[in-house]
Amino acid sequence: MPIVTRRRILALLTGAAAAIGVPSIWMSLMKTYDGPTSDHFDGLRFFDPDGVPPKSLAEVLRWQYGGERHRAKWPEWAPSPHSDIPPPRVNGAGVRLSFVGHASWLVQTGGLNILVDPVWSMRASPFSFAGPKRHNDPGIAFEKLPGIDAVLVSHGHYDHLDLATLSKLAATCAPRVITPLGNDVTMRDADAAIRAEAFDWHHRVELGNGIAVTLVPTRHWSARGLFDRNKTLWASFVLETPAGKLYIVCDSGYGDGRHFRRVADAHGPLRLAILPIGAYEPRWFMRDQHMNPEDAVKALADCGAAQALAHHHGTFQLTDEAIDAPAIALGEALDAANVPREKFATLKPGQVFEI
């Protein structure tokens, strides 16, 4: 097979893997979680009792090659006009949130610096030559980061769990890394210096200075290799801060909204929700695992947060919609629901939101 064709196939499969975790042939012998059974772990694989199984390889191929695909062309480079240089610490009752890009955030509050799903790599992929690549720089240059105390990693897909970035953080400031069950094995197998701590759904973890995080169920799944589908867990986070609780949803489908309503019941009132709005086309393929902007507006209503910030868009082209489609559709969905647009803000990398 010509090398161009091989690279094209790798790029397509790697892109699908980053978007929805399609198992891939190059990571077939990964170590995975081994633990007791539960209401969402059968002894071999995790599952969402209220969700649906991930798409099959046949459905992936239908999406990629079925002749019905309409993939928007993104600009080769779409730089943000913003670049943040965070302060060393934020003390007192405030929260400072800096959007790094895609699903990556820096949260500064209560004297702690917390990163969410940090990805500074050029590609969301195991390869340097294939897979989704960045269309803009991170909103904070890595060397401008303050000392990081803790990192929250939601699940194992390549656009959320970036081993190169975690290894670099381990070498520079050695933060705690809080992650759902099994992802700690992936991290430590790559670099023993990564201080990974794995927890189950509903586990509350004290981070210090009165700040804590609880892992909560979310409608998604996980895979990095051929034989590890759903062998690691996925989660969203409820972060307790001096300014109130932040609900951080890094990746999720909407379903019937019960995941969001349950968080409201168990953890409300919520001061802020960070909700994904991108990687949603085509809907027949993506709706069970990724929300579109209309879904995200429903999720905001369900969780009852006073304010929302949008993410998971505009940096890596994982699916078929245009680079600006999520932001445009979000505004339309807010108008249709009679929700003020300022209640659900869309930032560019490098922009800051403060509570």
Rank of each mutant, 00 (worst) to 15 (best):
M1Q: 13
P2N: 15
P2Q: 11
P2G: 13
T5Y: 14
I9H: 11
W26G: 05
F41Q: 04
F46C: 07
D50K: 13
G51P: 07
V52F: 10
P54T: 10
V60Y: 03
L61V: 03
W63K: 12
Y65Q: 12
H82A: 14
P86E: 14
R89P: 05
A93F: 03
W105E: 05
T109D: 00
N113I: 06
V119T: 06
W120N: 03
F127C: 08
R134Q: 06
N136M: 04
D137T: 12
I140L: 06
K144L: 13
G147N: 08
V151E: 05
D162K: 07
A164L: 11
T165I: 11
S167N: 10
A170R: 01
P180C: 10
N183W: 00
V185S: 05
T186N: 13
R188K: 15
A193C: 05
D200E: 13
H203W: 07
H203F: 08
R204Y: 07
G210T: 13
T214S: 15
H220M: 13
S222C: 14
R224Q: 14
F227L: 15
N230Y: 03
L233Y: 09
L239G: 02
T241D: 03
C250P: 10
R271M: 12
P276H: 01
G278Y: 05
A279K: 04
P282K: 03
F285K: 00
M286A: 11
D288V: 01
N292C: 12
E294I: 02
D295M: 08
K298E: 06
A299V: 02
D302M: 00
A308V: 02
A308P: 01
H313P: 07
T315L: 05
I328Q: 09
A333D: 08
D335M: 10
D335A: 15
A336W: 02
A337L: 12
N338E: 15
R341S: 11
T346M: 10
L347F: 01
E354T: 15
E354R: 14
